[in-house]
């Protein structure tokens, strides 16, 4: 993530730049459109504006999907950005590649949301991850309420073991 210049409320930003509150709002809004500002809060909460040295983009990859579904959340080891259609199946494959204990627990929650077993098996086979997928699936079956793998793929996994 880009280096932070600082966190401001609109009043503080106006004071530091010796401009009116309205001018500060306009300036912050302009910077937000260019990606230099992220805003948190709003409504009853005071808005806090985080200013960055260069434009930031919200990651939309593996960690976004896992942290949406998993009970235990993962701290991103890298920023992951996607162009195209990234599905739960793709996220499972990425989880298998990362392969550490915490990721395994988090990824097990994704098995409940699989819609395309064919795609998942095809990708696992292409990346030589069939054996690991089977192992993760067995773990997910024990620890979460997950969808059942179609029998033909179960056989394929066992055959490749």
């Amino acid at each position: 993530m880009a280096e932070i210049i600082g966190k401001y409320t609109v009043e503080l930003y106006a004071q530091e730049n010796s401009i009116s509150r309205q001018s500060a709002l306009n300036k912050l809004s302009g910077l937000k459109k260019k990606g230099f500002v992220k805003v948190s809060g709003g409504g009853k909460q005071k808005r806090i504006y985080t200013l960055y040295k260069r434009p930031v983009r919200e990651p939309n990859g593996f960690y976004s999907i896992v942290n949406k579904y998993a009970k235990i959340k993962l701290t991103p080891e890298f920023e992951h950005y996607i162009y195209g259609r990234y599905t739960v199946e793709d996220a499972i494959i990425d989880g298998l590649k990362i392969d550490n204990a915490r990721t395994k627990i988090a990824v097990s929650n994704l098995f409940r949301h699989i819609t395309d077993w064919t795609y998942l098996m095809h990708k696992a086979k292409g990346n030589n991850l069939l054996e690991r997928l089977h192992e993760y699936y067995e773990y997910a079956k024990k620890s979460t309420k997950c969808k059942r793998m179609p029998k033909r793929y179960m056989k394929e996994s066992i055959k490749n073991d």
């Binding site: 990859g61 890298f78 920023e79 992951h80 950005y81 996607i82 195209g84």
Partner: peptide, 16 residues
């Protein structure tokens, strides 16, 4: 290796 990666960009078409 994964440790040396700061950002990862995936372009998903027919292949990845």
């Amino acid at each position: 290796s994964q440790d040396a990666v700061l950002q990862k960009y995936d372009f998903l078409g027919k292949s990845r």
